[in-house]
Design a protein around this nucleic acid. Sequence first.
DNA 1: CTCAAGTTCAGG
DNA 2: TCCTGAACT
Length: 720
Amino acid sequence: MPVARPETSDSRVIAHVDMDCFYVQVEQRKQPDLRGLPTAVVQYNAWKGGALIAVSYEARKCGVKRSMRGSESKQVCPQIQLVQVPVARGKADLSTYRNAGSEVVSILARKGRCERASIDEVYLDLTDAAETMLAEAPPESLEIIEEEALKSHVLGLQSEDSSDAKENVRKWLCRSSVDRRDKLLACGALIVAELRLQVLKETEFTCSAGIAHNKMLAKLASGMNKPAQQTIVPSSSVKGLLDPLPIKKMKQLGGKLGNSLQSDLGINTVGDLLQFSEAKLQELYGINTGTWLWNIARGVSGEEVEGRLLPKSHGSGKTFPGPQALKTIASVQHWLNQLCEELSERLLSDLDQNKRIAHTLMMHGTAYKASDSDSHKKFPSKSCPLRYGTAKIQEDAFSLFQAALREYLGSYTAKIQGNQNNQWGITSLSVSASKIVPIPTGTASITKYFHGNHTSCSSTMQTQDTLFEEADPLSPAGKESNPEVNVTKPQIEFPGEETTIKYVVPSLDQLEDKKDLLNDQNPCCSSENQIQDEFTQESVPLSTSGSEHCSRINQSRQMKINYGEEPCVNVPSSNRPELKRKALKDKGTSSILRFFKNQDPSCAPQKLEHAKNMEDGKAPLSVGSQSGNDSSLDSNQSELPKERPFEEAGASSVSGSSQIEQRTGASWSYNVDEIDPSVIDELPPEIQQEVRALLRPHKRHNVVKRGPSIAHYFSPTKKA
DNA sequence: CTCAAGTTCAGG
DNA sequence: TCCTGAACT
């Protein structure tokens, strides 16, 4: 009888790919004269030559370190070429790097599931591709092995630096009578080498990679031989790698937790962790972190590679250090406007390119209060539903700021009230957009209307904007007097305007008209002028009870896409406790779905009616009716734009140039725990993998933090 | 269960 | 004396 593989024999082929000093490479591509020269990318040249954020390997050889100031690097390395980060709207603008990162991702995603881990890093799950290669064209059958693959570093393989290193690697890659898992890694290495060459050819960027059986090890390996090299971690070398490794080199242990480990346990290396029982680590650091530590010390990490090529949020921020701290409402508003402009631009571009819509706007700041001792008080973050349109985002962000500032100052007023000068200052501001979901595409979708006769792709954004406008009866395009709202006093006059909104999809013609209208009335210039005026004004002292013009709060706004299914995300699965695994019960991968659908009719997908609607192409957009509850003002939140319920829309895969990778499927409802393990091995291989992922241990709530507990007996690694 | 807000971490 | 984005509580 087949037995489920234990966690420690992970047979996946995972790669981590990391661009070499990425920002530098981007600048060198733009300016080829810089190639080969010691180069660094610097931002904000004003003070001591700016801060280095990326350093070329030539410069590193000269002793230049990241986090040196520009002038400092000049002393160490007088020939260093310093390139400034582009500036737009008075702040650093990273969009060229973001876009370059996207170029790379689109190439690296070709051979397997790909997760964009940061602007210049991805994880790849190459298991399937490696299995296929092993079955159809294993390395030993190949006449020639790619030069790039021969340059791999194989951890544990002797004579790395001997003259016949490549020959040794070739032998390793082509060994026929070995652990199947090593062969899979060899296949993975060939695939990664090819991908890296592809990246170089198409983007001119070099990168380094690690190939291993899990994400943690792959990540560790990718940093071991840089630049432009790759490193393989056979399982036989894991212990030798981890045991002597300083704890702080491990991802997630570079900060406070790593420090705690060192001081609490008096240890320095990952190997030192092995002395401690899982229970002990749980006792000290909580159930989830404890188990995670216990596992990583053994090279075990079940973290899945998420299939996600796009960021989950967009943000724009700026710091105003020391003397530059913002001291007037007008200057805050000015900078918020700049940040929001950038954010809005990026949101529109995401909408245009990826057909995604963000649903939450967040504003964060940091502040100080000079007057007296407890100036460490946190400046609160605030969020509200996101309305598309630069002016609206600016308006809402400003409202959020004012609410936050009142709260911030409010806590002082008890003490400070009457103090002549409110000596507050804002030392950083940021706005971000999150909860970004794909627009349903295909038959019964909004975008159906965009791609009709003549609507060009680039106009999508305005059209979309208009759509939102349409859905909101309270916000006729122009400025209008809004009910004044006050955070601290829920006595707001808010007209009980909750209504049932009947949304009718406008015709294309109407959309076009609206689009023009919106463009006309969305005058950045005029608002810009206004801002400038305000900017030069004297500071407006902020009083906690003062009346401000707040953005309208739209209680009755509701737009609902009657689209039934939830987006089907890749099943998150991991034995890395820190990772959340939500809604496992409710979601499955589409292939699992397909399989079970055929197998077991009792597991019928829910919401068939909706699927039917979709297919009929009818009621693509239906109207959300407002529930009575929404109309009453929440005493706490009354001054903020209220959450706009937006039923999650299922997305079908996007055709065309879009980079969207999110998959869609019907929601699924079954109980993971009810799957009989013995059945798994009879499933098709690719399904097996997914089911096993589902069956991996769940993250548990960290109920018991301290002290011995029975939780130990339910440890995820020891299934009861 | 989901949410908003606070915290931590990583890395160019 | 930077900016961004993910994840966890």
